[in-house]
């Protein structure tokens, strides 16, 4: 390993990252959603639940992004 630098040590560790475990694990637990009922607009639970996981993924990722942003004042593009 190279010697440590005098620059302040940066990292991307944050307790908020644990939130990302949800969208990684929940969609893999098939026993939770492998059911027909309840239906939503004709969709069996199996299908609409997995569409809902997309929203879960977006929500979790967005929260973690906002909470761990390194420089909140940086320019948007």
């Amino acid at each position: 390993m190279a010697e440590t630098t005098p620059r302040p040590r940066r990292g991307d560790r944050s307790p908020w990252n644990w939130l990302l475990v949800l969208p990684v694990v929940v969609p893999l637990l098939t026993f939770l959603f492998n059911k027909d009922k309840p239906r939503l607009a004709g969709f069996p639970f199996f299908y609409w639940a997995q569409f809902a996981f997309i929203i879960l993924g977006v929500a979790a990722t967005t929260v973690v992004y906002l909470m761990t942003r390194r420089d909140p004042g940086s320019k948007e593009d």
Binding site: L20, P23, V24, P27, L28, F53, I54, G57, A60
Partner: peptide, 10 residues
Amino acid sequence: VPYTVVVYPL
């Protein structure tokens, strides 16, 4: 669908 949900947090 679950595949493309799982991938982005990773």
